[in-house]
């Protein structure tokens, strides 16, 4: 376990870059799917990937080097200075629930659209226009 910690401290800049980079990559991949994919389900998947990226960014921002999870336990009552910031984690929990609801609603709308237009290709669904 100590070896792992040493390794972690040695490459901490790299790991920070990796976490933030992953979050931003996820957001960009999701945006790519939402903007350029034609299939409705793929667009919904893109929305979920964007959400995941934003959530990862939140958790990464709240992280403090060498800290524990923000949980008070017996014998550990004064550990607050050694904890990661709990607020972003609470926000992410809320955001995950909201993201879940939106995804479920989006998929039900996709089913409705498919029944109405008999296609899931967004280019062929364009009865509403200026």
């Amino acid at each position: 376990m100590t070896e792992f910690n040493d390794l972690f401290i040695k490459y901490k800049d790299l790991i920070t870059i990796a976490v933030y980079g992953t979050a931003i990559m996820l957001i960009l991949i999701g945006l790519y799917a939402v903007l350029l994919k034609k299939h409705l389900v793929k667009i919904v998947i893109g929305l979920s990937i964007i959400d995941a990226g934003v959530h990862l960014l939140f958790v990464a921002v709240g992280y403090i080097q060498n800290s524990t999870a923000p949980i008070f336990s017996p014998g550990n009552e004064y550990a607050a200075p050694k904890m990661v910031d709990p607020v972003p984690q609470a926000l992410v929990l809320t955001a995950i629930v909201i993201g879940f609801a939106v995804t479920a609603l989006a998929l039900s709308l996709v089913i409705r659209l498919y029944k109405h237009h008999h296609t899931a290709n967004i280019d062929q669904i364009k009865s509403l226009k200026w």
């Binding site: 955001a95 939106v102 709308l109």
Partner: peptide, 21 residues
């Protein structure tokens, strides 16, 4: 054709919520 309008609204609305976050 409510689903089409609803889906369009949802797409824009969830992008908005991402930016808001």
């Amino acid at each position: 054709n409510g689903a089409e309008a609803g889906f369009k609204y949802l797409l824009i609305g969830s992008l908005a919520s991402t930016f808001l976050l």
